[in-house]
Simulated assay, not measured.
Amino acid sequence: MDRISSNPFLTPALVRQGADLRAKLQATTQEMATGKQADTGATLRGDFGRLAATDHALARISGYTAATSELTLTASAMQSALAMISQAAEQLGSNLLSTASGLSAPQLAAVTSSGMRDFETVIAALNTRVSERPVFGGVNSAVAPLPDAQSILGALETAIAGVATPEDISAAVDSWFAGAGYEALYTGGAPVGGIAVAAGETASLPFTALDPAIRETLAGFAKVALLDRGLLAGDHAARAAFALGAGVDLQSSSDARAVLAGRIGTTEEQLSRAQARNSAEKSALTLARTALIEADPYEATVRLEDLESRLDAFYTITARLSRLSLTEYLR
Protein backbone atom coordinates (compact mmCIF):
# COMPACT_ATOMS: atom_id res chain seq x y z
CA MET A 1 0.00 0.00 0.00
CA ASP A 2 1.30 3.45 -0.85
CA ARG A 3 -1.52 5.41 0.91
CA ILE A 4 -0.41 7.87 3.56
CA SER A 5 -3.24 6.54 5.83
CA SER A 6 -1.25 3.34 6.30
CA ASN A 7 1.44 5.30 8.14
CA PRO A 8 1.40 3.81 11.68
CA PHE A 9 2.63 7.07 13.23
CA LEU A 10 0.23 9.50 11.53
CA THR A 11 -3.04 7.51 11.65
CA PRO A 12 -3.36 7.21 15.47
CA ALA A 13 -2.75 10.96 15.79
CA LEU A 14 -5.53 11.69 13.29
CA VAL A 15 -7.89 9.28 15.01
CA ARG A 16 -7.26 10.84 18.40
CA GLN A 17 -7.69 14.36 17.06
CA GLY A 18 -10.96 13.48 15.32
CA ALA A 19 -12.34 11.68 18.36
CA ASP A 20 -11.43 14.60 20.59
CA LEU A 21 -13.18 17.10 18.31
CA ARG A 22 -16.31 14.95 18.06
CA ALA A 23 -16.46 14.46 21.83
CA LYS A 24 -16.14 18.19 22.44
CA LEU A 25 -18.79 18.91 19.80
CA GLN A 26 -21.19 16.42 21.40
CA ALA A 27 -20.62 17.86 24.87
CA THR A 28 -21.17 21.42 23.66
CA THR A 29 -24.35 20.41 21.81
CA GLN A 30 -25.59 18.76 25.01
CA GLU A 31 -24.88 21.92 27.00
CA MET A 32 -26.89 24.01 24.54
CA ALA A 33 -29.79 21.55 24.67
CA THR A 34 -29.92 21.16 28.46
CA GLY A 35 -28.53 24.48 29.62
CA LYS A 36 -26.19 22.57 31.95
CA GLN A 37 -22.44 22.08 31.91
CA ALA A 38 -21.55 18.70 30.41
CA ASP A 39 -18.69 18.22 32.87
CA THR A 40 -20.11 19.19 36.26
CA GLY A 41 -16.97 18.07 38.08
CA ALA A 42 -14.78 20.38 36.04
CA THR A 43 -17.22 23.27 36.47
CA LEU A 44 -17.24 22.85 40.24
CA ARG A 45 -13.49 22.11 40.29
CA GLY A 46 -14.20 18.91 42.16
CA ASP A 47 -16.00 20.65 45.04
CA PHE A 48 -19.49 19.05 45.15
CA GLY A 49 -20.26 20.29 48.66
CA ARG A 50 -22.51 23.20 47.70
CA LEU A 51 -24.31 21.15 45.06
CA ALA A 52 -24.89 18.27 47.49
CA ALA A 53 -26.17 20.66 50.17
CA THR A 54 -28.55 22.27 47.69
CA ASP A 55 -29.85 18.89 46.51
CA HIS A 56 -30.37 17.81 50.13
CA ALA A 57 -32.34 20.98 50.85
CA LEU A 58 -34.49 20.44 47.74
CA ALA A 59 -35.19 16.85 48.80
CA ARG A 60 -36.25 18.11 52.23
CA ILE A 61 -38.59 20.65 50.63
CA SER A 62 -40.05 17.87 48.48
CA GLY A 63 -40.87 15.92 51.64
CA TYR A 64 -42.53 18.96 53.20
CA THR A 65 -44.54 19.49 50.03
CA ALA A 66 -45.81 15.91 50.07
CA ALA A 67 -46.80 16.24 53.74
CA THR A 68 -48.64 19.53 53.29
CA SER A 69 -50.44 18.22 50.20
CA GLU A 70 -51.67 15.12 52.05
CA LEU A 71 -52.77 17.08 55.11
CA THR A 72 -54.48 19.68 52.94
CA LEU A 73 -56.39 16.95 51.12
CA THR A 74 -57.42 15.37 54.43
CA ALA A 75 -58.52 18.72 55.86
CA SER A 76 -60.58 19.41 52.76
CA ALA A 77 -62.25 16.00 53.06
CA MET A 78 -63.00 16.72 56.73
CA GLN A 79 -64.60 20.04 55.88
CA SER A 80 -66.66 18.48 53.09
CA ALA A 81 -67.90 15.73 55.42
CA LEU A 82 -68.75 18.25 58.14
CA ALA A 83 -70.59 20.46 55.66
CA MET A 84 -72.68 17.51 54.51
CA ILE A 85 -73.39 16.43 58.10
CA SER A 86 -74.35 19.97 59.10
CA GLN A 87 -76.66 20.36 56.14
CA ALA A 88 -78.42 17.09 56.96
CA ALA A 89 -78.66 17.97 60.67
CA GLU A 90 -80.10 21.41 60.00
CA GLN A 91 -82.62 20.15 57.48
CA LEU A 92 -83.79 17.22 59.59
CA GLY A 93 -83.86 19.35 62.74
CA SER A 94 -85.88 22.03 60.99
CA ASN A 95 -88.35 19.46 59.67
CA LEU A 96 -88.81 17.96 63.13
CA LEU A 97 -89.26 21.30 64.86
CA SER A 98 -91.79 22.56 62.36
CA THR A 99 -93.92 19.45 61.92
CA ALA A 100 -93.32 16.85 64.65
CA SER A 101 -96.09 17.99 67.00
CA GLY A 102 -98.71 18.16 64.26
CA LEU A 103 -97.87 15.02 62.28
CA SER A 104 -99.99 11.93 62.12
CA ALA A 105 -98.36 8.60 62.97
CA PRO A 106 -97.73 7.70 59.30
CA GLN A 107 -96.31 11.14 58.58
CA LEU A 108 -94.01 10.97 61.59
CA ALA A 109 -92.88 7.54 60.43
CA ALA A 110 -91.92 9.05 57.06
CA VAL A 111 -89.81 11.71 58.77
CA THR A 112 -88.07 9.20 61.03
CA SER A 113 -87.38 6.99 58.01
CA SER A 114 -85.62 9.96 56.43
CA GLY A 115 -83.71 10.39 59.68
CA MET A 116 -82.52 6.79 59.53
CA ARG A 117 -81.14 7.36 56.05
CA ASP A 118 -79.42 10.50 57.27
CA PHE A 119 -77.82 8.61 60.16
CA GLU A 120 -76.47 5.98 57.78
CA THR A 121 -75.12 8.68 55.47
CA VAL A 122 -73.43 10.48 58.36
CA ILE A 123 -71.71 7.30 59.56
CA ALA A 124 -70.49 6.64 56.01
CA ALA A 125 -69.13 10.21 55.83
CA LEU A 126 -67.23 9.73 59.10
CA ASN A 127 -65.69 6.56 57.64
CA THR A 128 -64.52 8.38 54.49
CA ARG A 129 -60.97 7.47 53.42
CA VAL A 130 -58.42 9.72 51.74
CA SER A 131 -55.03 8.42 50.59
CA GLU A 132 -55.84 5.04 52.15
CA ARG A 133 -56.46 6.62 55.56
CA PRO A 134 -59.81 7.21 57.33
CA VAL A 135 -60.44 10.95 57.55
CA PHE A 136 -61.94 10.85 61.05
CA GLY A 137 -59.82 7.92 62.27
CA GLY A 138 -56.52 7.84 64.13
CA VAL A 139 -53.38 5.77 63.99
CA ASN A 140 -55.29 2.56 63.17
CA SER A 141 -55.50 3.45 59.50
CA ALA A 142 -56.28 -0.07 58.28
CA VAL A 143 -59.82 -0.09 59.67
CA ALA A 144 -62.86 2.17 59.56
CA PRO A 145 -63.17 4.16 62.80
CA LEU A 146 -66.86 3.30 63.23
CA PRO A 147 -69.01 0.22 62.54
CA ASP A 148 -72.05 0.51 60.29
CA ALA A 149 -75.08 2.49 61.43
CA GLN A 150 -77.23 -0.51 62.28
CA SER A 151 -74.53 -1.99 64.52
CA ILE A 152 -74.29 1.29 66.42
CA LEU A 153 -78.05 1.48 66.86
CA GLY A 154 -78.19 -2.13 68.01
CA ALA A 155 -75.60 -1.47 70.71
CA LEU A 156 -77.42 1.71 71.71
CA GLU A 157 -80.76 -0.09 72.02
CA THR A 158 -79.18 -2.64 74.32
CA ALA A 159 -77.74 0.12 76.49
CA ILE A 160 -81.05 1.99 76.91
CA ALA A 161 -83.25 -1.07 77.33
CA GLY A 162 -85.61 -0.56 80.25
CA VAL A 163 -85.58 3.24 80.12
CA ALA A 164 -89.22 4.32 79.77
CA THR A 165 -89.93 8.04 79.42
CA PRO A 166 -88.91 10.16 76.41
CA GLU A 167 -86.88 12.47 78.67
CA ASP A 168 -84.99 9.60 80.30
CA ILE A 169 -84.36 7.90 76.95
CA SER A 170 -83.00 11.14 75.49
CA ALA A 171 -80.68 11.59 78.46
CA ALA A 172 -79.53 7.95 78.21
CA VAL A 173 -78.71 8.36 74.50
CA ASP A 174 -76.73 11.52 75.20
CA SER A 175 -74.84 9.78 78.00
CA TRP A 176 -74.07 6.76 75.83
CA PHE A 177 -72.57 8.84 73.02
CA ALA A 178 -70.63 11.02 75.47
CA GLY A 179 -69.23 8.07 77.37
CA ALA A 180 -67.73 4.63 77.16
CA GLY A 181 -70.59 3.03 75.24
CA TYR A 182 -69.82 4.87 72.00
CA GLU A 183 -66.07 4.84 72.65
CA ALA A 184 -66.14 1.03 72.80
CA LEU A 185 -67.30 0.93 69.18
CA TYR A 186 -64.63 3.36 67.95
CA THR A 187 -61.64 1.50 66.48
CA GLY A 188 -59.67 4.37 64.93
CA GLY A 189 -57.06 4.57 67.66
CA ALA A 190 -55.35 7.65 69.04
CA PRO A 191 -55.18 10.82 66.90
CA VAL A 192 -52.33 11.00 64.41
CA GLY A 193 -49.47 13.16 65.70
CA GLY A 194 -47.90 16.20 64.10
CA ILE A 195 -46.10 15.97 60.75
CA ALA A 196 -43.24 18.24 59.63
CA VAL A 197 -44.57 20.66 57.01
CA ALA A 198 -41.73 23.20 56.97
CA ALA A 199 -38.37 23.76 58.62
CA GLY A 200 -38.98 23.67 62.37
CA GLU A 201 -42.76 23.47 61.97
CA THR A 202 -45.29 20.65 62.35
CA ALA A 203 -49.02 20.48 61.67
CA SER A 204 -51.67 17.99 62.68
CA LEU A 205 -55.35 17.16 62.26
CA PRO A 206 -56.11 15.39 65.55
CA PHE A 207 -59.85 15.32 64.92
CA THR A 208 -61.51 11.93 65.08
CA ALA A 209 -65.02 10.53 65.33
CA LEU A 210 -64.59 10.85 69.12
CA ASP A 211 -64.66 14.64 68.92
CA PRO A 212 -67.40 16.07 71.20
CA ALA A 213 -69.02 17.87 68.24
CA ILE A 214 -69.33 14.58 66.36
CA ARG A 215 -70.71 12.77 69.41
CA GLU A 216 -73.32 15.44 70.06
CA THR A 217 -74.46 15.44 66.44
CA LEU A 218 -74.62 11.65 66.23
CA ALA A 219 -76.78 11.55 69.36
CA GLY A 220 -79.37 13.75 67.66
CA PHE A 221 -79.44 11.65 64.50
CA ALA A 222 -79.53 8.40 66.50
CA LYS A 223 -82.63 9.49 68.41
CA VAL A 224 -84.54 9.90 65.16
CA ALA A 225 -83.17 6.62 63.83
CA LEU A 226 -84.27 4.81 67.00
CA LEU A 227 -87.82 6.00 66.37
CA ASP A 228 -87.58 4.44 62.91
CA ARG A 229 -86.55 1.14 64.55
CA GLY A 230 -89.69 1.17 66.73
CA LEU A 231 -88.73 3.14 69.83
CA LEU A 232 -91.83 4.06 71.89
CA ALA A 233 -94.01 2.11 69.49
CA GLY A 234 -97.73 2.50 70.13
CA ASP A 235 -97.44 5.84 71.91
CA HIS A 236 -97.72 8.48 69.20
CA ALA A 237 -97.66 11.40 71.63
CA ALA A 238 -94.47 10.16 73.25
CA ARG A 239 -92.88 9.52 69.84
CA ALA A 240 -93.80 13.02 68.67
CA ALA A 241 -92.38 14.59 71.84
CA PHE A 242 -89.17 12.57 71.50
CA ALA A 243 -88.84 13.58 67.83
CA LEU A 244 -89.31 17.22 68.75
CA GLY A 245 -86.53 16.95 71.34
CA ALA A 246 -84.25 15.32 68.75
CA GLY A 247 -84.92 18.24 66.43
CA VAL A 248 -83.85 20.67 69.14
CA ASP A 249 -80.67 18.64 69.72
CA LEU A 250 -79.78 18.65 66.03
CA GLN A 251 -80.25 22.39 65.79
CA SER A 252 -78.31 23.16 68.97
CA SER A 253 -75.35 21.00 67.92
CA SER A 254 -74.58 23.39 65.05
CA ASP A 255 -72.38 25.57 67.30
CA ALA A 256 -70.13 22.63 68.20
CA ARG A 257 -69.78 21.67 64.54
CA ALA A 258 -68.90 25.27 63.65
CA VAL A 259 -66.16 25.28 66.29
CA LEU A 260 -64.77 22.01 64.92
CA ALA A 261 -64.81 23.37 61.36
CA GLY A 262 -62.98 26.47 62.61
CA ARG A 263 -60.27 24.37 64.26
CA ILE A 264 -59.77 22.47 61.01
CA GLY A 265 -59.72 25.79 59.15
CA THR A 266 -56.93 27.06 61.41
CA THR A 267 -54.80 24.09 60.37
CA GLU A 268 -55.68 24.72 56.72
CA GLU A 269 -54.39 28.29 57.05
CA GLN A 270 -51.18 27.01 58.62
CA LEU A 271 -50.72 24.54 55.76
CA SER A 272 -51.33 27.27 53.18
CA ARG A 273 -48.65 29.48 54.73
CA ALA A 274 -46.23 26.56 54.92
CA GLN A 275 -46.84 25.73 51.26
CA ALA A 276 -46.12 29.33 50.27
CA ARG A 277 -42.85 29.38 52.23
CA ASN A 278 -41.78 26.02 50.85
CA SER A 279 -42.55 27.14 47.31
CA ALA A 280 -40.48 30.31 47.72
CA GLU A 281 -37.58 28.39 49.24
CA LYS A 282 -37.73 25.79 46.48
CA SER A 283 -37.58 28.50 43.82
CA ALA A 284 -34.56 30.09 45.47
CA LEU A 285 -32.78 26.76 45.83
CA THR A 286 -33.54 25.81 42.24
CA LEU A 287 -32.06 29.08 41.02
CA ALA A 288 -28.98 28.57 43.18
CA ARG A 289 -28.52 25.04 41.87
CA THR A 290 -28.90 26.19 38.28
CA ALA A 291 -26.30 28.89 38.83
CA LEU A 292 -23.81 26.26 40.00
CA ILE A 293 -24.01 24.08 36.91
CA GLU A 294 -25.58 26.18 34.17
CA ALA A 295 -23.84 26.64 30.85
CA ASP A 296 -23.36 30.10 29.34
CA PRO A 297 -25.46 29.94 26.14
CA TYR A 298 -23.41 32.63 24.37
CA GLU A 299 -20.09 30.99 25.21
CA ALA A 300 -21.48 27.58 24.20
CA THR A 301 -22.67 28.96 20.85
CA VAL A 302 -19.28 30.48 20.06
CA ARG A 303 -17.54 27.27 21.11
CA LEU A 304 -19.91 25.17 18.98
CA GLU A 305 -19.26 27.26 15.89
CA ASP A 306 -15.50 27.00 16.46
CA LEU A 307 -15.67 23.22 16.91
CA GLU A 308 -17.83 22.78 13.82
CA SER A 309 -15.33 24.83 11.80
CA ARG A 310 -12.37 22.86 13.16
CA LEU A 311 -14.09 19.52 12.61
CA ASP A 312 -15.01 20.50 9.06
CA ALA A 313 -11.39 21.46 8.39
CA PHE A 314 -10.22 18.21 9.95
CA TYR A 315 -12.46 16.16 7.68
CA THR A 316 -11.26 18.12 4.65
CA ILE A 317 -7.61 17.47 5.48
CA THR A 318 -8.28 13.83 6.27
CA ALA A 319 -10.08 13.36 2.97
CA ARG A 320 -7.16 14.84 1.06
CA LEU A 321 -4.63 12.71 2.90
CA SER A 322 -6.66 9.56 2.28
CA ARG A 323 -6.41 10.21 -1.48
CA LEU A 324 -2.67 10.99 -1.40
CA SER A 325 -0.40 8.27 -2.84
CA LEU A 326 3.29 7.77 -1.96
CA THR A 327 4.31 8.80 -5.50
CA GLU A 328 2.40 12.07 -5.20
CA TYR A 329 3.85 12.63 -1.76
CA LEU A 330 7.46 12.25 -3.05
CA ARG A 331 7.08 14.73 -5.90
Rank of each mutant, 00 (worst) to 15 (best):
R117E: 15
E157C: 01
A171L: 10
S94D: 14
V197N: 11
L153W: 05
A196S: 14
G181R: 01
E167Y: 07
T187F: 00
A161G: 09
A105D: 15
A110R: 10
G188L: 02
G154W: 08
L185K: 05
Q91P: 01
E132G: 12
N140M: 07
G200A: 06
A159H: 05
V197H: 04
L103K: 05
S141M: 14
Y186H: 00
L92R: 06
I169T: 14
A172M: 00
A161R: 13
G102D: 05
G137D: 06
A88Y: 11
A88L: 12
L146N: 08
V173H: 00
D174A: 10
N127E: 06
R117F: 14
P191S: 02
G181N: 01
V143A: 14
D118A: 11
M84K: 13
E167Q: 15
D118I: 00
A125K: 12
A159M: 03
V192H: 11
E157M: 08
V135I: 08
S141C: 07
I169H: 03
A190Y: 00
G138E: 07
I160E: 12
T202D: 15
I152D: 04
G200N: 07
G137E: 06
G194V: 10
P134L: 04
I85C: 08
V111E: 11
A199P: 11
V130G: 02
E201S: 11
I123R: 02
L126H: 10
A155K: 03
V173M: 04
Q107I: 06
S113Y: 05
T112L: 11
L103R: 08
A100E: 01
A184R: 03
P106F: 11
A125T: 07
L156K: 07
Y182I: 04
R133W: 04
F119I: 01
L185E: 03
E90N: 15
E167S: 14
V139K: 01
V122I: 09
P166E: 01
M116N: 02
S175Y: 04
I169Q: 12
T202E: 15
S170E: 12
R133M: 09
N140T: 10
A171R: 10
L103N: 13
D174K: 01
V122C: 01
M84F: 12
V139H: 00
P106I: 10
L97R: 12
V130P: 00
S131Q: 14
G93E: 07
G93Y: 09
S86C: 09
I195C: 02
L146V: 09
N95C: 07
A88W: 09
D168A: 12
D148V: 12
Y182G: 04
T202M: 14
Y186S: 03
S131W: 09
S141G: 15
Q107L: 10
E120G: 14
P145L: 03
A199D: 15
G93H: 09
D174I: 02
P145K: 03
R133N: 03
